[in-house]
Amino acid sequence: MKDMQDAAASGTIGPVLIVDDHPLYSDALDAALRMVFPECQPSKAQTLGAALELLEQGLAPDLVMFDLKLPDVCGISGFQRLHEALPEVPVLVISSLTSVQVVQALMQEGAAGFLPKDAPAPLLREALREIAAGRRYVHAGYLGETVSEAEAPPFEAMHPKLAELTPQQKRIMKLICAGKPNKQIAYELDLAEATVKAHITALLRRLGVQNRTQAAVLVESSQPATTIGAADADAQAFLSR
């Protein structure tokens, strides 16, 4: 981060990795980036796998601009993998998935900032300058918004079928909705991963759905809308993966 701050102070920045599967939008990010840092050196990847390959080949970016909806990304785990690979590099997430829950999860996981994809170019430039200066940036529409457990309805009240789950299955279902992979669920509940898989198989059967995504969409779509983007079906599905 210090190198990035020094670069920002001198009006330049080095390598930047843009991860977005839409070439036109990726080009737009490139153009906006060069308006702030004319000497930057953008590299582009259309999938998380391609981005990780660039890192393995020696790319050492000062900044990553990351879209959440990629062909090989399932939920927040895609951002988590990238952040694990580059723990000291700021990652600005720019996405059409704009529910408050998604934004909160990203910031808690270590994102340097978040912008919705429809943000105007001046706002993007402001975010880039803030992050380059070592600060975190979140679109003003999300500041001060919180979604606490105390405000949420009882889990089983969200959908009649949830009342049919056992207490352990409900705990697992909540973690699925938070975007946790099986390994992480096993760790947090102190269970064997095979046991978690067995519980998930059973709860899917009880809920009458085929997979984790459908189960979480069932839960998320039953929740009342809260704030910005909460009614977006894509955003509701994101945390389920």
Rank of each mutant, 00 (worst) to 15 (best):
E145A: 13
H199G: 05
G14N: 14
L86D: 07
V89R: 02
L24C: 03
Q41D: 07
A127E: 06
S148V: 11
Q41T: 05
H22M: 15
K170M: 05
L218Y: 06
G78K: 01
P116W: 03
K197R: 11
T195M: 09
L29S: 01
C74F: 09
H22F: 11
T47N: 01
H199C: 12
G11W: 07
V36K: 10
R205D: 11
L106C: 06
I200Q: 09
G134M: 06
T201Y: 04
A157K: 14
Y137S: 12
E56W: 01
A85W: 03
G58C: 02
L86Y: 05
F66W: 00
Q184L: 04
S222K: 07
Q80E: 03
Q57R: 07
R125P: 02
T12S: 13
L204Y: 08
Q5K: 12
A230H: 14
A216I: 09
K2V: 11
A105Q: 07
L128K: 07
Q168R: 15
Q41S: 08
E53N: 01
A192D: 12
S148L: 07
V73C: 07
A9N: 05
D21V: 04
Q80A: 02
A192N: 12
A150R: 15
P120L: 10
R125I: 10
Q214G: 12
Q101N: 05
A194G: 07
T195S: 15
Q223F: 11
K197V: 02
P181D: 04
V16F: 11
F79Y: 05
P42Q: 08
E164W: 05
L191W: 08
P160C: 05
R206I: 08
I172P: 00
V103D: 12
V19Q: 02
I131T: 13
R34A: 12
A127H: 14
T166G: 11
A157D: 13
D67A: 02
G141T: 11
Q236W: 08
K69V: 04
F114P: 04
P116G: 10
D67W: 02
F238L: 10
D232C: 14
A194H: 02
E193V: 14
A140H: 15
E84D: 08
V64M: 03
G179R: 01
D6C: 06
V19D: 06
A28C: 02
A127P: 13
D232R: 13
T227Y: 10
N182H: 08
A194R: 08
K197S: 11
R136V: 07
A50L: 03
E193Q: 14
K161M: 11
V91N: 04
A127S: 13
D62P: 01
A237C: 09
L82M: 10
A231D: 15
